[in-house]
Each structure stands twice: as structure tokens, then as C-alpha cells.
Simulated assay, not measured.
Amino acid sequence: MQVGREARTDDLVKVDTPDVLNEEEYREFWVALDNDEIKVGKGGDIEPFMQCPIPEPFTITHYGYSTGWGATGWWQFYGDKQLTTEDCLTYNFEPAYGDSVSFSVACNNDAHVALASGPEETTPMYELFIGGWENQHSAIRLNKGDDMIKVETPDAVCSDEERKFSVSFKDGRIKVGYMDTAPFMEWTDPEPWKITHVGYCTGWGATGKWQIHI
């Protein structure tokens, strides 16, 4: 399997992937674009089997799909995942492919996001509180201890409309912001670790409707 330049010249990376496809069954894959790097992995695997930096980064707006060299293909694509959370502060975990996630949420207050090393609450773990403290502040907390940073974010979330957010966590640098804007909160962990799952929940009187962008 190869990743090639748009001009179809040299491959950026080429790895051995024996029998990675099969015409008798669907095989699931994911592609992540993070921090000017392309990552490709198998469904259910956190680690990519192929990755490379983009030497001349550009804005990617569309994806294309094809088969060739004697092959025809049948494809299925996964869209946004919808999630409803109760007022219970219990995280719903999903795999993290790459070094960032984006989502939309509608709630009165306290949209909580956990960054963990497994599909459950772990140590270490980061918690991101968006619209906490009666929807007036947001914070990043480490291991359910002290807040590493707390900022004013009046009316950050709203139950009447979905607000779109993005979270990145490359090399322990946590950034939280509205989609396509500069982050309103960030903190760097001096001892970073591998994040494999992201959890979502609401609490403190709030329920939430989420769309997780896959």
C-alpha cells in the first residue's frame, strides 16, 4: 500500500501489508490528518500501520476513493456518531484515532471530555470541562486533582443549539477551542503519555446531545 504525492511522483511512505484486503469481506480502516501528518490504521487498532509527515502542507477539503490494477471495490463510509448523555457524570468512551477530536454538543452546562489511555477512566487521565461552574468557566484537570488551567468562558455551551468544538492533544499539549478558531484554553503536560480513548459526559443538572465527528 502506498501514499503518493498529488503529482504521482515519489511515494511518501511504503510499507508491507500482506493480504490487507479481501474481496470476500469488508475490512475496516481509518485515516487521520493531524498536525500535518497522515496516519492510516485498521478498524479497532489505535496505532496506525502507516504514517508520514506532509512535506508541503495544504488545506484538505475533499477525499477521493478508487480501485484499480484489475480490482473492483464495494465501499461503506461511516459518518458522525450521535450520542445522548444523562445527568450522571459517567463517561461514554470512543477510540481516539490520531491526535485530535472534534464534536458538537447541545447542553445547558458542563460538557465534560476525558482523555484516557483505555476505554474507561484511567490514571493518568485528563478531564476537560467546557461550560462548567454554571456555564461561566472551563478547565483542564489532571487525574481528578487540581485544575491545571481554568478560564472564563461565559455561555460556552447552549441547550438550544449545537456548539462545535475541537480538541487536540499532540505530545501532551492540550488545546480546546471552537471549531476553526484559535483555542480558548490550552495547557502542556511536562510528562505526556499516549491517549487512546476519549470519553464524553454531562452532569451537574445537564443532559447533552452530541455528534462525534468521525
Rank of each mutant, 00 (worst) to 15 (best):
M185C: 02
K175E: 14
L128M: 03
M125Y: 01
G132D: 01
E191D: 15
K164E: 14
Q136E: 09
T123S: 15
T123V: 12
G145C: 07
N143H: 07
M185F: 01
T181I: 07
W193N: 09
D147A: 09
S168H: 10
R173S: 15
V176P: 03
D171L: 09
I140P: 03
N108Q: 13
R141H: 05
L128W: 06
W187H: 11
T181N: 11
L128P: 00
K150G: 05
G118P: 09
S117I: 15
R173Y: 14
G131T: 00
C158I: 12
K194T: 14
P190S: 09
G177T: 00
F165E: 01
G145S: 03
S159H: 10
C107N: 15
F129Y: 10
R141C: 08
G131M: 03
S168M: 05
E120R: 13
D110W: 10
S159W: 13
P190D: 09
G132S: 00
F184E: 05
M148Y: 04
A182M: 12
L142Y: 09
V167F: 00
G131A: 06
H137Y: 10
W187Y: 13
F165V: 04
L128I: 12
P124A: 08
D110Q: 05
E186V: 08
F129I: 09
S104M: 14
T196L: 06
D155A: 07
S168Q: 08
S159T: 15
A116H: 06
S159P: 15
M125H: 11
